[in-house]
């Protein structure tokens, strides 16, 4: 089941493209010190201090910031934290959604009522304003609060779709058989149900990571993150606060956004591929 899934995934062109883009970003993140010409917080080298607000030059391919940081180096190092926050948030969100979806879909009854109820509240409350309010109350600015806030508000949709899928899978014959045989419910959940909703879990991961990357960038752009951290979001924050636009410094605000979009697209592509694979109607035959 899972193997077939992965095979189809690899064979899907959209998934492959997404995977390639993602791998490139991962390589950039891992080997940042080798690729980047300078350290992200370096303002001078042997030749002297870096110029401020420099245009692209042969030394600083994407120019420098108002504080004299090399933009290209920041962009490359920024991949690390951006990717980390996005993926970790995606994983936590998916985990929460999966746990709640499984519990509520399989055990039904009271637990389900309570979870579904909280779920529908979280679904209708607009997440970004909620995130902004919560984030602005948190006095410690940093990566961890962002991850927590984004995961706390992002699980609702995933939990809802996983629940309904679990409901339908648990009506299937092989689950009924396992139940009649008196199998431990947790074993049923993990051995019989989980493998059958794996594509949905993957899709949830891709969408929540996509949402997390955009959410992270947005929070940081507003200044609700740790502004001294090096991420694409904070790069845009500094660019905006220093009127990069009006200085015509496209090399400052264009690349980080483009990278956010590309990274987002890679997840969007993989998500779309999963949809195609698991829904034979959408699949182009």
């Amino acid at each position: 089941m899972i193997k077939d899934m992965l095979k189809l995934f690899i064979e899907n062109k959209k998934a492959m493209l997404g995977l390639i883009i993602l791998s490139m970003f991962i390589i950039v993140a891992v080997f940042a010190p080798l690729i980047a010409p300078f350290e992200p917080k370096q303002r001078e080298d042997a030749a002297g201090e870096f110029p401020l607000r420099s245009e692209p030059t042969s030394k600083h391919l994407l120019g420098t910031t108002h504080a004299g940081y090399d933009i290209l180096s920041r962009l490359i190092y920024g991949t690390r934290l951006t990717l980390l926050v996005g993926m970790v948030t995606g994983i936590i969100t998916t985990f929460v959604a999966l746990a709640l979806g499984l519990i509520s879909g399989y055990f039904k009854g009271r637990v389900d009522d309570v979870i579904s109820f909280v779920n529908s509240i979280f679904l209708v409350i607009p997440s970004l304003p909620l995130i902004i309010v919560v984030a602005s109350y948190i006095t410690i600015k940093g990566v961890l609060p962002i991850i927590l806030v984004l995961s706390l508000t992002g699980w609702a949709w995933g939990a809802r779709v996983i629940r309904s899928q679990v409901l339908s899978v648990s009506e299937r014959e092989f689950v009924k058989v396992a139940e009649v045989l008196g199998e431990n419910p947790f074993i049923i959940v993990f051995r019989e149900i989980l493998p059958n909703i794996i594509s949905l879990v993957m899709a949830t991961f891709f969408t929540s990571t996509l949402a997390a990357i955009i959410g992270e960038a947005t929070l940081e752009f507003i200044g609700l993150g740790n502004v001294s951290a090096v991420t694409w979001g904070t790069m845009l924050y500094w660019a905006q606060n220093n009127a990069a636009l009006l200085y015509n410094a496209w090399w400052w605000f264009l690349p980080p956004g483009l990278f956010i979009g590309l990274l987002g697209t890679s997840f969007a592509l993989m998500n779309f591929a999963i949809d195609e694979i698991s829904n034979p109607k959408i699949r182009k035959r």
Binding site: L210, I214, A217, T218, F221, L236, F253, P256, G257, I260, G261, L262, L263, G264, T265, F267, A268, L269, F272
Partner: peptide, 11 residues
């Protein structure tokens, strides 16, 4: 799919 992956503010 591409446009949707960008933050609105950057667009």
């Amino acid at each position: 799919l591409f446009i949707r992956s960008f933050p609105y503010f950057w667009f």
